[in-house]
Amino acid sequence: MSSSWNIIQQSLPMFEKGFVLTLWLSFVGIIGSIIVGLICSLVQYFKVPVLHQIASIYIEISRNTPLLIQLFFLYYAFPVIGIKFGAQLCGIIGLIFLGGSYMAEGFTGGFNGVTKSQVESGKAIGLSRWQLAKYVVFPQGFSLSVPAMAANVIFLIKETSIFTVIAIPELTNTALDLIGMYYRSNEYLFVLVVGYAIILIPLSIILTLLEKRVRYGSFGN
């Protein structure tokens, strides 16, 4: 029996690969989610006909169903009707499908959080709809949406652990694979938790600092 430390050391190269993949998939997924979320929230803010309703339906479906079933659908059910993606692409599409609605709600929450007096003052000095959005609602709304964005970023990184169900070799999948092969659950689970802590603890500290900084930007503080 080799010692726990040896077991951990030997597994590190594999965990490193999983770690990098988790980071990469999260990064692509988060950027994609922000883009989709921004588009949806703008479409809703300006009440663009048809697209506005489509965005609402998409948001409700995506927010009220689990990522795991979304992934199963993409990975196992779509090929039956002739649409086929690789596992990693499925993971990214699934994460963006899920994250897009959370980001959209975050932005919309920020826009709605701009106080009524601000909007009405803008209207009173004769700003057009577009000027009101550009100079009053968006600058304040984006800074108000930062806390929600930060929470979503952390949430989406954690959700990548579900990618293990379609056998994407990210962190969680790496650990489960190793446990399956060598039956050393304590060691591998330890590395797994440390792996997520290395990503999430510094990130949540940075995001908290960012929230504090942006708060100066909002009106009335």
Partner: peptide, 20 residues
């Protein structure tokens, strides 16, 4: 509980409670 993903929490309890 905030930092560890729920999948990982489930496996932590699943493996560690019975063995340890």
């Amino acid at each position: 509980f905030r930092i560890v993903p729920t999948v990982v929490l489930l496996f932590l309890f699943y493996y560690i409670l019975p063995r340890q």
